[in-house]
Design a protein around this nucleic acid. Structure first.
Lengths: 374, 374
DNA sequence: TTGTAAGCGTTATCAT
DNA sequence: ATGATAACGCTTACAA
């Protein structure tokens, strides 16, 4: 029973719909009619909100399923003042950066559990694209927003704050903008990497910086500086090269570093992608790792674990970061804006693999075995 | 990896903004009043639809911007019969699989150009999660749907077809379901890989299959079979091992293959991720590549290009696939359902790198230089 | 050129 | 326990 009469009321409208195709989705009124009750009752029966006689409730439910009725999310959001849209925006700079999909996955996992949709925005780190996306998300009445590795200037921050929309920022160091925050202690991360190297006797340690637009990049660099200073390492400015987080920039930086009169005995990169570039360049230059030069990355992307790469790196809990951001956001959405901003700082940890060893001129304890011998 | 302390010392920063907070977003009526015109005029002035006196139009626009007015997407979609929601769903199995982010990026690039939002759904290849996501997308009145590497059984396909929603499937071989389609010639891809190997003299070539739930996996396997048959290669069933597209399964399969009485001289994997597993396993087993065993992958993920990996593989145009899917979808959304289904089959191409060489017992032309020597 | 009013599909507030 | 009816914020006939 109950089959084709959806569309009964609005027949004649769907010109083109000739053969039984294009059966429009039934609306709540269709279900109501089919059940001989009012739309309100259907709504209540389905939402389990008000008291509805068990009998009617069952009837409505059965018919609704039979007809394939599904409430329109848009209509729902429009109605009911407290109505959520059950969707959140996720703004990332570059979905192709290996750390990002893992973060996204962490976010998705949590959101899925509360049946919240994820609107993905890829900004290519362009200011205007970023803002346009945010505006578009707001137009959609999203319940909340997660911003990964993005900086907002005062004007932008102010204009967004006005919306008093639940926001969680990820990988952005604290500023005046009071949003919830998830991140790691970047400084501690690089410092532990440098400490490890100096502990093995390295003194001439190079650093390849990340994109300057990121506060995380600054923090990681600080860790390097502190670590070098603490061990009385070489502070030759030529040992610091600007990169942009891409593999290629790691490659270029390495050629530059190895061309120095006194090349470094170890290279620390601000992320794994650049470290991979370092390894590639060294390989092509015929420099053995870790025999002649040690290499350390930051992030611990999946590929770094590969036996052919086997990169010593600082582990960044990417999945957990995403999951935590989503949890914070959902909590904020439920609690409302009156709670104090929450910060979650996860701890990175050094993972020692095969690209690090004592410097050649100081054959102390051997590393975990040479990784590549050219 | 040590959990972090939560809630840092940013207390004191959050003062509860009591008074002027929560300035709600202005609605069209607010703008109308502020301009002394009717809401209809505001709508028309902003949408540039009907003729509006240039003067009023400018006034309305200025005031709208001043007040920060933005039309509600939900209300817009709900109103106007022809109203699109300017959002599409993108269903993928695993965002962490390296080919996926690149496809996503291709989709995003095109969608962004037409200001259409991307709702990302990660199914983990679970049937129920997949269908739940699709339903949720339909509830949201999305304008269209892109399904990447997903199979739908008849019942599912039928129930979705009823919606007559614009759909583009990616990486799924043709079946009775008439949707637009983007894919590559998978069979030709693996066949070219096998041809290359047999051309160098290989006869005992192993194959690691992809997940059986995917039709692409079947097609790729077919290419292997055809290639082997054409060259009179070894059809020993032990040479075919089932994998699941993960790196780990490539590793396991390789140990199994190399433990055979007569191990293969070459291994073809149904994707790069498994091929990376193969390389890792061979490395750990002390088998030289390509000296003792040649390895070929499929996809050409970013990492395969790395000098330390340097994997010979079949290039799969991931970005272009995503972009093409989005173009097809947008076109379908605009053209309506009456046009015939369109199919787009892109051509894969073999990329010869360093993991392939003639078999040891047949030292013809050497490969492009040994990649790894253990 | 502009205003009025009728939807769009729900949920919420009243009555009954 | 249920049914009218008024929002929700917008677009678009239809009038003026």
């Amino acid at each position: 029973m109950v089959q084709g009469d959806a569309n009964a009321g609005n027949a004649g409208r769907g010109e083109r719909v000739e053969g039984g195709r294009g059966a429009q989705r039934p609306k709540i009124l269709d279900v109501a009619k089919a059940c001989g009750v009012s739309p309100a009752t259907v709504s209540n029966a389905l939402a389990n909100k008000r008291q509805v006689k068990a009998e009617t409730r069952e009837l409505v439910r059965r018919v609704a399923i039979e007809m394939g009725y599904r409430p329109s999310a848009a209509a729902r959001g429009l109605s009911s003042r407290a109505g959520r849209t059950w969707s959140v925006g996720l703004v990332v700079g570059d979905i192709e950066n290996p750390v990002v999909p893992t973060i996204v996955r962490g976010v998705e996992e949590i959101l899925w559990a509360s049946r919240t949709s994820l609107i993905l925005c890829n900004t290519d780190f362009q200011q205007d694209k970023k803002m346009a996306y945010v505006r578009s998300l707001v137009d959609r009445d999203i319940d909340g927003l997660i911003l990964v590795s993005h900086l907002f200037n005062d004007m932008e921050a102010r204009s967004i704050s006005l919306l008093d929309l639940p926001i969680v920022t990820v990988n952005r160091m604290a500023d005046e903008w009071k949003t919830d925050y998830v991140g790691i202690d970047n400084t501690a991360g690089t410092r532990s990497a440098v400490n490890y190297l100096t502990g093995m006797g390295h003194r001439r340690i190079a650093y390849i910086k990340g994109l300057h637009t990121s506060t995380a990049a600054e923090a990681r660099f600080d860790g390097y500086l502190v670590g070098i200073a603490a061990a009385g390492g070489d502070t030759d400015p030529d040992l610091v090269v600007q990169g942009d987080y891409t593999q290629e920039s790691g490659d270029i930086a390495t050629r530059q570093l190895m061309a120095l009169d006194r090349p470094p005995t170890a290279i620390v990169a601000a992320n794994d992608l650049m470290a991979l570039g370092v390894l590639g360049a060294l390989r092509n230059l015929g420099v053995s790792v870790p025999g002649e030069v040690s290499v350390v990355g930051f992030d611990d992307i999946h590929m770094s674990r590969h036996p052919l790469i086997n990169l010593t790196t600082v582990h960044y809990p990417q999945h957990e970061t995403g999951a935590m951001a989503a949890r914070l956001l959902l909590r904020r959405i439920e609690d409302g804006p009156d709670e104090l901003p929450r910060s979650m700082v996860l701890q990175p940890s050094l993972i020692v693999r095969g690209t690090t060893a004592p410097p050649r001129d100081m054959p102390g304890t051997a590393g975990s075995g040479p990784n590549i011998t050219v």
